[in-house]
Design a protein around this nucleic acid. Sequence first.
DNA 1: AAGTGGTCTAGACCACCAT
DNA 2: TGGTGGTCTAGACCACTTA
Lengths: 249, 249
Amino acid sequence: MNESISTPDIHHGPLYKRVKRLLTQGLAAGEWKPNEAIPSESKLAQRFNVSIGTVRKAIDELAAENILVRQQGRGTFVATHSVNRYLYHFYHVINEDGTKHLPVPELLLYRRIKADARLAAHLNLDRGDRVIHVRNLLRMQGKPVEVYDIYLDAARFDALDRESFEQRKGPVYQLYQERLGLNVIRTSEQLRAVGVGAEEGQLLGVAANTPVLQVERIAYTYHDMPVEYRCSLVNTTGHVYQSDQEARP
Amino acid sequence: MNESISTPDIHHGPLYKRVKRLLTQGLAAGEWKPNEAIPSESKLAQRFNVSIGTVRKAIDELAAENILVRQQGRGTFVATHSVNRYLYHFYHVINEDGTKHLPVPELLLYRRIKADARLAAHLNLDRGDRVIHVRNLLRMQGKPVEVYDIYLDAARFDALDRESFEQRKGPVYQLYQERLGLNVIRTSEQLRAVGVGAEEGQLLGVAANTPVLQVERIAYTYHDMPVEYRCSLVNTTGHVYQSDQEARP
DNA sequence: AAGTGGTCTAGACCACCAT
DNA sequence: TGGTGGTCTAGACCACTTA
């Protein structure tokens, strides 16, 4: 249990970065699960044989990245994707007037397919690997807003069957987290305007060829590992995609 | 010149937050201009009568917000919007294949108008206040990609005439910064898919009603003061709007 | 060589939460 | 009351830049 960081001869950069790496490894390995507390700063300082300040600096960065959450007087916890905390970190569609409403999903399709070249590239798989394909329709205040297709590595997400998606409460990333211990911590999206197809138009309640927002997303877990590829179509009459940049002073 | 922070009786929160506020005020007041160095950490510690660690924590946050930039061994500098450093912080349109290219602007229109209700609301002005309206066409690798209309408070931006926009090298935010000492530090955007009008379609080289990405942006300077309202239309055949969320561990 | 930011430590005290 | 994170200090040493 002694993970003391000795060997100052071989130096892998600053100490606190090494501590951060050890913590990240613990998180990726499931040593501490979402919503659980990690050991106190003084315990970690003992365990890694560094000063509290160094541990604090490592935790500082992980907290800034929303991977850990500090609560004064209680402890430091592994972040979760619960509705209240994370909904709008990865979900950017809001009402045109700026108000936010809970999106309600309806499962349209669940099936298993084989990865084509494009899917394989996005998910870091080989062509022909088994992939889970899920299609959902999202409504806000009863109005259809978004239809999206999710593609997941069937090997990794095997535990998720149709019922998992049908009966879920809350975001899919919460589902991944609770059922698989898999944390989505980063997404990369590419947005285009396209004319909607007949089928998707019908789902969204607009005529074929109406301009809609296409969002291609790749979601990553620790170590920049892609875990989900998603393609959405958003009806932007009445709703908008909100994109804020930089922090405030 | 003694700005010593005494009066611990009236406590406006943590010391380092007060230091941060003082630094931000100095920046907003133009005490240190873009690309200039602020005083060294030890000087600031003396001046504010706090320890270096406290100054460092204040600067840490400003650096995390890309308002200051540290350079080991040289000093801490006020961030600029120069092409190399800032182009892709606020500019999100890239080639479909993920490659980035320098957008080349062409000035289409420069005029002064009166603010209508919507403009006044966005820019925190009164109806009828004078506003500068600038229209540009952006090309990447020769191909027209984006046409956008910028609206600015004429009182604040009076120094910018047509030639300023015609002859500029680099992003408009660099222009604001160099000519007016005005720092854009945050933007908020709302994205929609719309059918392009005939005139804008011609500029972008697509047929009328082609789906294009509409980006409405409000740009803010210190203290959440809006300084620019912008409405863009992006041709997303061949290019995409890139939107990344959260940091990596 | 002098000055800057970067890292690390050790300790004090505070604010908050649980019990 | 004891344990947690939050703030603040003081000092040592390192890495880097400039002259």
